[in-house]
Design a protein around this nucleic acid. Structure first.
Lengths: 246, 246
DNA sequence: TAGATTGTTAATCGATTAACAATC
DNA sequence: TAGATTGTTAATCGATTAACAATC
């Protein structure tokens, strides 16, 4: 699990000593990056089902996208398919996992061990995918000391020391909105460069830090928008166009 | 809270009897829809801070976007600003809330009361935003009957009856991937038309049903991709270009 | 070789952005 | 009126899609 920094240069298959034809990670479009985890999951499922090779058509179906999009996405990573045959399931899985950095071991801290923090700390998907939780933190003295999934909840004071000693680079924020920015600043100061923010607020970070936001309320509101759109659509039951004489 | 179907036609401000110039909800771009909750949140914060009016520049700053994008987004909803002045905070909040359908009361069921289901059931943001939880479900007999946030967990058998009687149209899936499709099918058959899927699997639904997916593992993997990109970037410590003679 | 399927091209579509005329 | 700020235009950018030449 502990590959070195130039991990992707390793020559597992004995092919491609020079990767000049392969796109740089920086050149992979963001929309493509966001779909790589889906492809990885689909490939895992296909491997478990015993398949050795898969066509772009079948893999796309399993991942819930169109086959043209899938082939375009994979083309950004390089050419790992065989015309007339398809993709070798295990090999493609390995390539994508490499590109996603899942062959490194990323160290994660979770700050805010409320309901959601508890749920995330107990999430089995961390370890199996190259993510190791190295610290759980909370301010609440009644929560501090509690053991969650085999790991004690520490006081917030110990945040910086643990991040530094544990070498954590990913921070998960499950704190109230009001304190999210402050906690984030401390994480960044201690060396975290990637933040997954569950707090319902905008947080600002220096340019070298990545933030992704997961927002339950927003997701529900977007669903509500479309539900309302359906209800108001012409032809929908009870729909009346504004200004229309009924 | 219980506005009727033509709620957005109500004439709160006495203006705009005919809305012909205003875009249909169907015409609001998806990217814009996904930002409306952020704007709503920013407006709430500004209102709490006592502001009456706000410029696109200041609102954009609070929402974490550019001002040009904000003005373009708002233009899809209609013209609620005043040139030379800005937007009236309360009025704009009301308009966006209307468009998102938050003045209706959406009924929600949550299926799968594990760690994450617990967290969501206890989430305070539901009620305050026009979402009412009308049912919690699990298959596990040791969980069924437990009272979570004042509501008893019911056996899965009662899913259809509760969805129908409660008039739920939104279903939240916090079940294992293996059973997600089956539970989703039952939700849809019972009348749910919007699904928020936390299960790490692709689920298929009829065309009239909306699905949004929240996926912790994917989010972490996307962060890992960018972290790896940073580590491999030219100039990064320890970076060696593939094929380069060191 | 014939059939199958990739990888790539080019057209289309949708989103972002800067600039500025309209107008309060 | 003069200053400020919106709403819209048009250019640019990025993502999607269908079609098909390349090739196994």
């Amino acid at each position: 699990m502990d590959d070195d920094v130039v991990g992707s240069a390793r020559l597992r298959t004995g092919r491609r000593l020079y990767e000049s034809a392969v796109t740089n990670p920086a050149d992979v479009p963001e929309a493509t990056v966001s779909r790589l985890p889906q492809y990885l999951r689909a490939l895992s499922a296909l491997a478990e089902a015993g398949l050795r090779t898969v066509s772009s058509e079948a893999l796309a179906e399993a991942a819930g996208v169109g086959s043209a999009k899938l082939r375009k996405d994979l083309s950004y990573l390089g050419s790992y398919g065989t015309r007339g045959v398809g993709y070798e399931v295990g090999e493609l899985h390995q390539h994508i996992a490499d590109r996603l950095g899942l062959t490194s071991s990323w160290r994660v801290v979770i700050v805010g061990i409320g309901n959601l923090g508890h749920a995330l700390a107990g999430y089995g998907g961390f370890a199996s995918r190259g993510f190791g939780v190295v610290g759980l933190f909370d301010v609440d003295p009644t929560v501090v000391g509690e053991v969650v999934s085999g790991m004690p909840v520490r006081p917030l004071d110990e945040l910086e020391a643990t991040v530094r000693e544990g070498g954590a680079t990913i921070g998960v924020l499950t704190v109230p909105a009001a304190v999210a920015q402050g906690v984030c600043d401390r994480l960044v100061a201690a060396g975290v460069t990637s933040v997954l923010n569950f707090a319902p607020t905008v947080i600002r970070v220096p340019e070298h830090v990545d933030v992704r936001k997961v927002d339950l309320a927003s997701e529900l509101q977007i669903l509500a928008f479309h539900a309302q759109r359906k209800a108001h659509a012409p032809g929908a039951p009870g729909h009346v166009r504004v200004g229309e004489v009924v």
